[in-house]
């Protein structure tokens, strides 16, 4: 009767491989844990709800930030700046200059808006048409709209703008994109805040699941004692609780996904209306497969971690008396 491994301890049973024993054990324990959850549907649902909402919060903020970033990226690609020419330049001077600048490698395109065109446009847009007609001469200069090539960095852009500013023909260079950079900085702060929030919420989930598991263990104390008495190892008595944690995590994560996707679905309509106003093509980016599986993965990990820590702590304490 020397101590042997489990399978040997009971000789006349059909021998199955270690793996299939392992698999069979886990399958039945996991289903058992799921069955246990379904027998208290209300309590289980509440816990899943709490986990889902807790996870959905940072996930949703993350999606919003991501969408804002993609929108602002399309702005920052428009790095155009305007170059207003000195009044004494003629149209052909301006054309020559435009051609000259256009040849530079770091310039994608140069558009010329002549003074006449500008005035026409201004009359149309401003509504001051009649008043402007009173002007004896066109007060507007010719202007070049310069679009740098996309290969430019922030530093090379500044340099380019400086060069243009120093050209003798230049009256004024106007850059409109500074606020885009500020917006990006704000988004970075929000992202940072989210990652801090995620850690805190993660801790909250671990505490919640840990507590539930602890209560579950207390409720089943007698059962644990009896099974240990007839030879169950700590691993054996721990297993159902690990599966309980797993299911809480999985179902809570799935619920969080559902919440986020539903929220995005609700946003789709107003966003496309807004996009219509801007003649833009703003679409709401939803969670990618990777992000979705990350949410589920994190949820499952938290559930398993919480139940493992709790079960390991309490199992040792419960010994048959």
């Amino acid at each position: 009767m020397a101590i042997t491994r489990n399978a040997d301890a009971i000789a006349p049973v059909r021998s199955s491989s270690v793996f299939s024993i392992w698999l069979a054990r886990h399958t039945s324990t996991s289903l058992g844990a799921l069955g246990r959850l379904s027998r208290q549907p209300f309590a289980s649902l509440m816990i899943i709800l709490v986990i889902g909402v807790t996870l959905a919060l940072p996930a949703a903020i993350n999606v919003i930030v991501k969408n804002m970033q993609s929108v602002s990226n399309s702005w920052s690609n428009a790095l155009d700046f305007s170059m207003y020419l000195k009044k004494d330049l003629t149209v052909s001077d301006a054309e020559d200059l435009a051609n000259l600048i256009r040849q530079r490698a770091d310039i994608e395109s140069v558009g010329l808006i002549t003074a006449d065109e500008a005035l026409l446009e201004f009359k149309k847009q401003s509504g001051f048409g009649k008043a402007l007609n009173q002007l004896s001469e066109n007060p507007l200069p010719h202007a070049l709209v310069i679009r740098p090539s996309s290969g430019n960095t922030g530093a090379s852009l500044t340099l380019l703008q400086e060069e243009i500013r120093n050209l003798p023909e230049t009256e004024l260079v106007q850059v409109d994109t500074e606020w885009v950079q500020r917006f990006h900085a704000i988004l970075d702060i929000v992202r940072q805040a989210i990652s801090i929030g995620v850690v805190l919420l993660g801790i909250a989930i671990v505490v919640i699941i840990g507590n539930i598991i602890r209560l579950d263990i207390e409720n089943r104390r007698e059962e644990i004692e009896v099974t240990k008495l007839i030879g169950a190892s700590n691993a054996f008595v721990r297993r159902p609780f690990l599966w309980t944690g797993f299911w809480y995590g999985l179902l809570g994560g799935a619920f969080a996904l559902l919440l986020v996707q539903y929220g995005l679905y609700l946003l789709r309509e107003p966003v496309s209306r807004l996009a219509g106003l801007y003649q833009g093509k703003i679409t709401v980016a939803s969670l990618t497969i990777t992000e979705s599986s990350a949410i589920i993965g994190i949820a499952v990990f938290l559930g398993l971690f919480a139940s493992w820590v709790t079960a390991a702590r309490h199992m040792r304490r419960i010994e048959p008396r």
Partner: peptide
Amino acid sequence: ALPLIIAGVSYRD
């Protein structure tokens, strides 16, 4: 069945 289950025998066996 519990002692058998603990020892890793499947429920069916």
